Amino acid sequence: MEALVSIASVYFFIVLGFIAKKVFSDDINDKTLILISIYFLQPILTFWGLTRVELNYNLIYTPFLYFIIVTTLLLFSIAVAKKISTDSKEQSIFIAASLIGNTGNLGIPLGIALFGTESVAYTSMINIANIFFIYTIGIYFYARSSFNIKNSLKNIFKIPILWFALLAIIYNYFGFSIHPQIDMLLEMGAYSAIVLQLLIFGIYLSGVKIQTINYKLTFSSTFIKLILLPFVGYLFLVFLNVDKFIASILIIQLLVPLAVNNVNIASLYDCKPYDVTIIVILSSLLFIPILFFYMQFIGA
């Protein structure tokens, strides 16, 4: 039930953004919302989220496995990207988008619903790994479609989210406390970031035209995210004989649909955000039936 409520909440704000753009049309400047989200609210969300987690070095193994599995598929995606498209922007979308999952807004509450509160420590650490992947590898490939390699690498360090994530980990490591009033402000900013992010997705969804959908890119990216990534993850975990509880959490986190952040970053670097939007919505729609199959498969 908690998982269904989380999914319903996500779609509520997406629909709200969709309606807002349809009603107010050009009065809504989506690029302004993107800049506010990435440069102001997303760093607050990242800092707030990472200071909620009590760092336990026994948990490092889980995000490490997650990162290894995702990196393996990254190398595969790079190898086959030219077979998917000759367009550099579409290649970047295929390489990056299909590996960036919604491990935070959806992954953590889904973990609680399926595995109980014991999963929070693991899903939170996996989300940390995903944040670093998004704002390093993800930024590099999205920016690469519009910049050369040198400037693409520079763009990684221009995004404040990565620095706020590092600050939060240092803050957490030394055990600093946050004043309740400041913590309340951070929490307000964090939830505002989530809502704004979903509204942005709805706004871009309103501009998608069925006749312009790139079906090859859409279905190949969705296949990587919902089928190949969790399957390769399963093979890795079986080979390493990972504890069943941890393995089940990892597979579900690998399976979650594409993160809405893909749309934000694609828009920021002018990397066909409408194509990314339709991939995110397709993976979100297919996620629910595929989730039930994987739950039976792993015995969750």
Score class of each variant (00 low, 15 high):
residue 237 L to Q: 03
residue 225 K to V: 13
residue 257 P to F: 06
residue 229 L to Q: 09
residue 231 F to G: 00
residue 233 G to T: 05
residue 236 F to Q: 10
residue 253 Q to R: 06
residue 220 S to C: 11
residue 239 F to S: 15
residue 246 I to F: 08
residue 217 L to G: 10
residue 230 P to N: 08
residue 234 Y to M: 15
residue 220 S to W: 09
residue 252 I to Y: 04
residue 238 V to C: 03
residue 225 K to E: 08
residue 250 L to W: 05
residue 228 L to P: 11
residue 222 T to A: 14
residue 236 F to I: 06
residue 240 L to S: 11
residue 251 I to L: 14
residue 256 V to D: 01
residue 236 F to E: 02
residue 242 V to M: 07
residue 247 A to E: 03
residue 243 D to L: 03
residue 228 L to E: 05
residue 219 F to S: 01
residue 240 L to H: 10
residue 249 I to R: 11
residue 234 Y to N: 12
residue 222 T to K: 00
residue 222 T to D: 02
residue 228 L to T: 05
residue 243 D to M: 07
residue 242 V to T: 15
residue 229 L to H: 13
residue 238 V to E: 13
residue 243 D to R: 09
residue 217 L to V: 06
residue 236 F to C: 07
residue 226 L to A: 10
residue 239 F to M: 14
residue 249 I to W: 04
residue 252 I to G: 01
residue 231 F to N: 00
residue 251 I to Y: 02
residue 219 F to Q: 00
residue 236 F to R: 13
residue 229 L to S: 01
residue 242 V to K: 12
residue 234 Y to G: 02
residue 222 T to H: 01
residue 250 L to T: 11
residue 237 L to G: 02
residue 234 Y to A: 13
residue 247 A to W: 00
residue 257 P to L: 03
residue 255 L to C: 09
residue 231 F to W: 03
residue 250 L to K: 12
residue 251 I to G: 02
residue 243 D to I: 03
residue 249 I to H: 05
residue 255 L to R: 06
residue 220 S to I: 02
residue 255 L to Q: 06
residue 258 L to E: 12
residue 256 V to L: 04
residue 245 F to C: 04
residue 256 V to E: 01
residue 248 S to P: 02
residue 248 S to H: 12
residue 234 Y to D: 00
residue 250 L to N: 10
residue 221 S to R: 09
residue 225 K to N: 13
residue 237 L to P: 02
residue 216 K to W: 13
residue 254 L to F: 06
residue 228 L to A: 12
residue 255 L to V: 10
residue 242 V to D: 01
residue 249 I to M: 04
residue 216 K to A: 09
residue 224 I to M: 14
residue 223 F to V: 13
residue 243 D to T: 05
residue 233 G to D: 00
residue 220 S to M: 14
residue 255 L to W: 09
residue 251 I to A: 07
residue 230 P to C: 06
residue 249 I to S: 07
residue 239 F to D: 10
